[in-house]
Amino acid sequence: MTFVHQNGVKALDGVSLTIEKHELVGIVGENGAGKTTLVRHINGLLRPTSGSVLIDGADARGTSVAKLSRKIGIAFQNPDHQLFSESVEHEITFALKNFGFDDALIEQRLNWALDFFGLKEYHKSSPLILSGGEKKRLTLASILAWDPEVVVLDEPTVGQDAIQKAKLLEIARTLHSAGKTIIIVSHDVEFLWSLQPRLVVMKRGRVVEDGPCAVVMQERELLEDARVSQPQLVALYESLSRRPASPFQDVSQALSWVSGERR
């Protein structure tokens, strides 16, 4: 999958970005850097003033949001901006009906989603009584249910506690290894660091850096300028006088290196 995208207005300024199938991409940058605007271009909610968005090599210009969404599922930040049904079940099947799935398939996808997102016990409950973390998972379930090839997560960890975050991390990893293309817009550098995605840094409507997480997160000045902070493990790595070739990806890596050093 490819999209090239260029835009004359201030919100986005000459953005060119190509995302391949099965990639895991993180987008960071300060509020107002254009991340959300960029995301809204991917499924046609916004159309570029100049330049183009290509999905699977085809120009998205003439294709409706509904058609594009079939391929690209976007989970927006606030679950309260989309939950409306009288039951969890209906919430999940809403999009499937919109996309014209047949009953047997709807049934099958519903069961998969309830199971995968741990919502089985609530399938008849109203979405309004769910906790914040459950609402978030229901939002994801209602989108993953139609099996989009590309999944966009807009600030998935906002307001989520450690337990929910761990679940979200697990979900993102599973989906990625199942072959989905995943794009995550997030302020949560620790969360992104755990996923080690390809990292795109945005500032004032431009892409200012694009590369592997482990490399980009070491560019202190660039990040400072884009108002992004470094994950703790990277900050630790950089302050060490003797250190391995690349930053620690998780605590256990740091631990084995440090204990090796101290022996």
């Binding site: 809204r40 499924n43 909610l45 409706s64 949001v65 509904a66 969404s69 079939r70 599922g73 976007i74 927006f76 606030n78 901006h81 989309q82 409306f84 809403f94 999009a95 919109n98 996309f99 209602s142 989108i143 139609w146």
Partner: peptide, 16 residues
């Protein structure tokens, strides 16, 4: 603004 964001979310779920 809420209304626009909600419309965007539902359009992204195939609502026409």
């Amino acid at each position: 603004l809420d209304a626009f964001q909600i419309m965007d979310a539902q359009k992204s779920r195939g609502l026409e």
